[in-house]
Design a protein around this nucleic acid. Structure first.
Lengths: 231, 231
DNA sequence: AGGTAAGGATTGTTCAACAATCCTTCAATA
DNA sequence: TATTGAAGGATTGTTGAACAATCCTTACCT
């Protein structure tokens, strides 16, 4: 065997290994999840086992395993002997999700002073990313920045399990967001709120920041609910 | 076809339907979970697919689905091409779990006034159940009462998703509890704490109740950690 | 119109086979 | 002796097929 040319080679190798290491079902689940969060697979749609497994060139069993993974993430619902469908969160689901977020994120933001400097910087980075997106009129970035912001808030608590749960909740919410047509109209209101929260945090006014965060939840939830129950 | 004799027949049928409807995998998962929480399947143990599927008289596929359910509950860990193992929570895991519980349960208890009367009664019932267990020297009941208490506290927030997450966290903790030999010694300290918290809540001293809850977390966590990192 | 029976389509479950991977053992070599 | 490498067995990963169970549609009959 010949020795490979000295490159910075181990880094990319580790990445490859990581993606190879993952089970096929997980990669399929990733693919489907992307399609769902992009809005290509719209809520309510039924996913046909035979058609999809043939299209992806995998067996039905493997696809079913991918379905199970996404069902656990609450992105799909499984109805016995009927099949799997893309979740369409209703008003109750949205209320439940926001109740959970209120508890988790408000509890996390209160740890601002105790959090690591790294975690605090994560919040600042998320806001900065959103500002840059707004300046360049990239409203898709503003949307992801908003999600990043709330994940950063959660990370202040320093619990991986909490982070995962919030990630699940946010993914589920994105399925509800599809009813919002214009993302700009939806997100442009939230960026200044995030900025305000960060300013309060940096001024060590944690209690006020929490109040502002609660206001955000109220407006965002009612935003969604009126759309869902409206026309 | 002959008509069935008039019985109260639909009730039992619905039950049957429900239990039939429950996938076989879930029943298998229940069986395995019981064995794990009884301490029969000790942390670190590998679960062999072939042996277990044959012992239970089910197919390997069904067993794998049961494994997935338990993996999602974080009672099992799955290592690619190596198999599934019973989780053995270490010090970092315990710290992570308690960080999450602090955020969730403290956030939930603060909703005492806003919660439904039903939810508040759930907390009282859990404490009462523990008291009864202590009076009759049934320390197993005191243990389950403690778990019930914390689930009831969580339920004050009114979010099913939060309830499920806490249930997962508590199940994971029970795997760590197996290192505690004597359950009585472990739980008898916590019952009076729960009583004190309830008394404060019923006196509408929510902030003090939260402080007491935090103290509980501190003592319980250090209890566990010293055992885990000690001998 | 309403109920019913047949049929096709889809999902549920199991099994057997093979590929891919990991672990152990053991021998060879520096 | 310690390390490397290869062979082998054991376990998991994935697939395809088969059949049962269920749902949905259609067409028919009263």
């Amino acid at each position: 065997m010949t020795t490979a040319p000295s490159h910075d080679w181990l880094g990319t190798l580790a990445d490859d290994r990581l993606s190879q290491d993952r089970a096929r079902a997980e990669r399929v689940a990733d693919k489907l999840r992307d399609r769902m969060l992009d809005g290509e697979l719209t809520p309510g749609l039924q996913l046909n086992e035979k058609a999809i497994s043939e299209a992806l060139g995998i067996s039905r069993n493997t696809l079913r395993e991918a379905f199970r993974l996404l069902t656990h993430e609450r992105l799909l619902v499984h109805e016995h002997s009927r099949g799997v469908f893309v979740c369409e969160p209703g008003v109750e689901e949205v209320a439940d999700i926001y109740a959970a977020r209120r508890v988790i994120e408000c509890g996390a933001i209160r740890r601002w002073a105790d959090a690591t400097e790294e975690a605090r910087q994560g919040v600042r980075d998320a806001v900065a990313f959103g500002v840059r997106g707004a300046e360049t009129d990239n409203w898709l970035d503003v949307g992801t920045a908003n999600i990043r912001f709330h994940r950063a808030i959660t990370a202040l608590a320093g619990s991986l399990r909490l982070d995962e749960e919030v990630q699940r909740l946010l993914a589920e919410l994105r399925l509800a967001f599809y009813v919002m047509g214009n993302p700009r109209e939806f997100y442009q209101d939230y960026l200044p709120m995030n900025q305000a929260i960060l300013a309060l945090l940096d001024a060590d006014s944690v209690a006020e920041a929490e109040q502002e965060l609660l206001r955000y939840f109220d407006t965002a939830e009612s935003h969604l609910v009126t759309r869902l129950s409206g026309p």
